[in-house]
Nucleic acid binder design. Structure first.
Length: 274
DNA sequence: AACAATGTTCAGTC
DNA sequence: GGACTGAACATTGT
């Protein structure tokens, strides 16, 4: 999915849906829209509009205004494991996509049409739409999402705060990086990329890492994030193509090894990240 | 057919 | 209660 870089691209696409009057809403997928009942989200959006698009980590939300122009509830959107945002300008427009599982820089290409994979659709009075397109159906839309449960955004966290929040606890450092309440935005691929760039074992205990090592990890995350945003997604990371059996570290040639860390499939260099 | 998948959440256990 | 772990969730692709 979408990790922070893809979600930021999706948020940017979402801006194209702002300040347009909502004609109708399809919120009938009661799994994606849980805990709301079908029609509940539609009731608060129809006649009104979305007024701003925000993001923290992998979570997005829109500010809304009702038909009277007064602020309404926030509309939370999460892309889950493979969701993307599509915004169209009119009924016959193909649309721009953001949050593609395999995006490329500047991606605005054609969107696969599989109507049944549109899990949530807002139609505007100009005929255009905002769609959550998600074949795996792990994406989520809800009113008043709890953004405060998330830690600081991975793109904005400073050195000191990173050191304190990540360098705590008995669990593996990779598990800390993946914990969205510690730091918001890092997913499985970005975690592997960052740890490989920093030369740190994913299973090293977080609270045993020296301050200098944590600073180094913070720098590596910062660089990996910026690179992924610039190049168009976390899959552009240097180590991502080497996360498979029989692969060798592109830096030192030692075999890449695999295991489960923090509950997720993990690949690391057997020599540099021992 | 069995298993893994770029994510979150919930039920357990310490 | 907090910290941590593993399974479950829905669906597709290999």
């Amino acid at each position: 999915m979408p990790e922070l870089p893809e979600v930021e691209a999706a948020r940017s696409v979402l801006e194209g849906a702002l300040d347009r009057e909502v004609r109708s809403v399809d919120d009938n997928d009661d799994w994606v829209c849980r805990p709301h009942r079908p029609g509940e989200i539609a009731r608060v959006l129809v006649g009104g509009r979305l007024t701003a698009a925000h993001r923290r980590g992998k979570s997005m939300w829109c500010e809304t205004a009702g038909r009277d122009g007064e602020p309404g509830p926030r509309l939370g959107i999460h892309l889950g494991m493979g969701g993307r945002i599509v915004v169209t300008d009119s009924a016959d427009d193909e649309g721009r996509a953001g949050g593609d599982p395999r995006p490329v820089a500047g991606y605005t290409g054609a969107v696969p049409r599989k109507p049944e994979w549109n899990r949530f659709v807002v139609t505007f009075t100009d005929g255009g739409q905002l769609r959550l397109f998600d074949k795996r159906r792990l994406g989520r839309v809800r009113l008043e999402p709890d953004i405060d449960a998330l830690g600081p955004d991975a793109e904005e966290i400073g050195r000191e705060e990173f050191r304190v929040r990540v360098g705590r606890g008995h669990s593996a450092v990779k598990a800390r990086l993946l914990d969205q309440s510690v730091l918001a935005g890092v997913g499985n691929l970005l975690a592997d990329e960052t740890l490989w760039q920093a030369g740190i074992s994913p299973s090293a205990r977080a609270d045993e890492l020296p301050a200098a090592t944590l600073d180094h990890l913070h720098d590596a995350l910062d660089k990996a994030l910026r690179s992924a945003i610039e190049k168009g997604g976390v899959h552009t990371g240097e180590i991502i193509g080497f996360r498979h059996a029989d692969a060798h570290c592109p830096r030192c040639g030692a075999p890449m090894v695999h295991g489960t860390v923090g509950g997720r499939s993990t690949w690391w260099c057997s020599a540099e990240q021992a």
